[in-house]
Amino acid sequence: MFGRIGYRVRDLPTARRFDEAAAAALGLQVIDNSETSFLVIRSTEARLPFVWIGTEQPAFWSARHQVSASPIHVAFAAKSRAEVDAFHKAVLAAGGTDNGKPGPRGPAAAHCYTAFAPDPDGNNIEAGVREAPAA
């Protein structure tokens, strides 16, 4: 499990509109972090783990870093198929494009239900729920 991850974007307001739509559909929140970044968190009471999204280069990144070379893949855990469906609908309404309609995926497809949409910078954003195998 990660404590935090982060990546850079070109246009903060455009990225924020997309990420606010995705977060709301999954019961997450978007909060300000600085003038050039925001965070996606579970809630104001549970701020870890978080996803940092911003336009500046963090001070701890050195010149050797390949800064946010797109596309990256970020997968958010959904609580249900309904949340996955809501995520997909919300990000498309926020200007996103379909990169995988909600449905079963992967080798354990019967137990994983996901949807994908590229964000405005081309990063592949996923919402998915793992389900118990049918008895």
Rank of each mutant, 00 (worst) to 15 (best):
S70F: 06
A93I: 01
G96D: 05
F76Y: 15
V84L: 05
R81K: 13
R81A: 01
A94S: 09
L92I: 07
R81S: 02
G96Q: 05
G96M: 02
V84H: 00
S70R: 12
S68F: 04
L92R: 10
A77Y: 10
L92F: 07
E83C: 08
H88N: 02
G95T: 08
H88D: 00
T97C: 12
A78V: 14
R81I: 08
S80L: 06
G96T: 01
G96S: 10
V91M: 08
D98Y: 11
A69Y: 04
H88S: 00
S80V: 15
V74C: 10
A77G: 13
L92P: 01
I72S: 07
T97F: 09
E83Y: 04
G95C: 07
A75Q: 08
K79A: 14
G95P: 07
H88K: 07
A86C: 02
F76L: 12
F87Y: 15
D98T: 06
F76M: 02
T97D: 10
A93D: 11
A77E: 14
S80F: 05
R81E: 09
V74D: 05
S70Q: 12
S68A: 10
A82G: 02
I72V: 15
V91D: 02
A93W: 03
T97I: 11
F76G: 02
T97Q: 15
G95I: 04
F87G: 03
D98V: 03
S70T: 08
H88R: 12
G96C: 08
S80M: 10
A94I: 00
A75S: 11
I72H: 12
K79Q: 13
V74Y: 13
A77L: 14
G95Y: 00
P71I: 08
K89H: 08
S70I: 04
A93Q: 13
P71T: 04
I72P: 03
G96L: 02
